[in-house]
Design a protein around this nucleic acid. Structure first.
Lengths: 345, 345
DNA sequence: CGATGGTATGGGAGCGCTCCCAATCGTGAT
DNA sequence: ATCACGATTGGGAGCGCTCCCATACCATCG
């Protein structure tokens, strides 16, 4: 190394060594200050901090990562199928939450969209090779093996949502059962007597939970189960439309419908309008997710809101804890949902 | 170093050195193979590739970054104010485009939401300190100094949208002028004679472009400028509502409105309904952005679509080129917009 | 047949940082 | 005054990789 450049970073930025020289201490001491070690005297710490400020020193990430064997980065993995759903407030909220929680750490957020299945394998290998300290998994499907793969590789993982009743992998979920109950109780509270539901695909745990919440609320109100009031959908608008027509065929007198997703509520409304039913006059409607759609429907749709930003924050906190303290206890968090009341009910 | 661990990574993963040993070559040769150098004989290359496959070797990012002085990562920076707009298809598209373009490189995507102004400064310093090879900037405001700061630091930067007519920083934008023209031509083509517009905030370049496109289309159709047909909004629904009322007050006989944003079109439609005008019977409506809103409006809204995914790809390609080839030529790309026809016009 | 010029290849020297051990310096106890 | 011991501190040894120089080899040329 040329003597002239001694201690200077390749692109002119100061290095730890330069800071040490300026503060009149050794490299180790500067490193201790940077990493907040208590084993530094106040005098020395102040001198080092001054030198850091003077030089505008910023630690070199890659060097730290290499030496300390941790990357200071976590990945947020989103299946591409859901990439489109990015437009939903769900992802927006999650990302904001994650980002907020990361804001005063020096941890980076890596965003990874996974498209083809083969990219999953690639990602697993990739993630495990020292590139990230942990992984946040969004909207995992019931049969997705990725969470387990990563967990087996010893990589800390937290997901949003569960794949089933007893999910082994740490997760943060919203209280789908409670949310559905909230919706149905609200409908009953408004004097509706015949509350139907359009449920989501039964291979999705969240959909099953919402249906369970619906049933539970009716049971609590002393109403027996009535399968004629349950129509299955797949969360899409089209399925909501079809389900609504089916429900009206079966029970023309129903006066309220809890839809397990906003798009299905949208479809239901279309069907209701076509069949001459007014909302909320004849039939009250409640959706789930409180998407942009809900706010702009006519009439605006009452909907169950998930605390998406809070979920993002919670996931991140949980992941950081797993990273720092190992997985003695695998967090399973359930965050409360909230009913946003609008004109449709 | 303990002899037993010679050549093995700290967490048991194979290192370049192990691969070299297995393939019976030197470190340099393996490195050359990995980096696609042509200076390797076919025989040797095959042997090395075999060893890599056998061992499941994956290069250690941090080590590469440190040694090669580049991070193999780019940052996508989103001002938090727009964080909420994440829910719009715009970001969704951009992210998908960026991600797609990055898919077969080994470059990471770092997502950074910037909230407070002080975070901007922090990010600038941060970005410049060897952590990212380049920056993608989304929806920059007219007076935002960040792009220039980064550019001055010698960091490759590409943004979406321009801040003004002659933007010095490389950018990818959609053809706002052309999109507006498309919309107005469409309206005229449908036999509308009195086409008004609700424009966006005049301190946003994109808004000015859309207004210019509107004027240009009318001029091309032989219609003189008529300021009474132009009402100002700020892209929000409320402003669209107010502007629509104002327009109807001025020119009760207008039969078409080009709105510079979908939410404004939403507001306009509300005003029209309140005043007893039907859409598209009495007044045809066209929006801009083709958001989820547009698809679900009643009637569904004709809207100008930006090629968001294409913009994401283009930005990424441009940035990678800047990174690899320096900024001899600063790319200024304009991508075409498209009119999505629906029932509102 | 030695000189010349490529082409492949090996491996030393770092990149900037963390870890950790050894050295130094008090300070209170003996 | 001597000794033990904890608190600070300095700096060697790497982390896994890329760069680049030196070496080895081979074919061509005068």
């Amino acid at each position: 190394m040329a003597v002239a450049r001694r201690g200077a970073g390749r692109d002119g930025r100061p290095t730890l060594e330069q800071v040490a020289a300026r503060a009149g201490v050794g490299r180790g001491t500067v490193s201790r200050v940077i990493n907040g070690s208590p084993r530094v005297s106040d005098r020395t710490r102040a001198a080092v901090e001054q030198a850091i400020a003077d030089l505008g020193y910023v630690p070199h990430q890659a060097a730290r990562a290499l030496a300390a064997n941790r990357s200071n980065a976590i990945a947020l993995v989103v299946p591409e199928a859901e990439g489109r759903l990015f437009s939903e407030p769900f992802f927006s909220g999650i990302i904001r939450g994650v980002s907020a929680e990361l804001a005063d750490t020096d941890i980076q957020l890596l965003l990874t969209l996974i498209r083809a299945p083969r990219e999953r394998a690639r990602f697993a290998q990739y993630a495990a090779s020292d590139r990230v300290d942990g992984v946040l998994l969004v909207s995992v499907h019931g049969d997705d093996p990725l969470p387990d793969q990563l967990a087996e590789m010893g990589l800390p993982v937290v997901m949003t949502g569960r794949r089933s009743e007893n999910e082994p992998v740490p997760y943060v979920d919203c209280d789908n059962v409670g949310g559905a109950q909230l919706a149905v109780e609200h409908l009953l509270g408004r004097g509706r007597s015949t509350v139907a539901t359009i449920s989501g695909p039964s291979d999705m745990y969240a959909a099953r939970c919402r249906l369970e919440g619906y049933r539970e609320a009716l049971r609590a109100a002393g109403k027996g189960p009535d399968d004629e009031l349950v129509a299955g959908g797949d969360f899409t608008e089209e399925s909501g439309y079809a389900a609504m027509r089916e429900l009206l065929r079966r029970r023309p007198a129903l006066d309220a419908v809890f839809c397990a997703s906003d798009p299905m509520a949208m479809g239901a409304r279309r069907a209701l309008r076509e069949l001459g039913r007014s909302v909320p006059g004849d039939v009250a409607l409640v959706g789930f997710d409180d998407s942009a759609l809900a706010r702009h429907m006519d009439p605006p749709l009452t909907s169950v809101r998930q605390p998406t930003e809070g979920m993002g924050r919670a996931m991140t906190r949980a992941l950081l804890q797993l990273i720092n303290e190992g997985d003695q206890d695998r967090p399973h968090l359930l965050l409360p949902t909230e009913l946003v009341r609008r004109a449709s009910s």
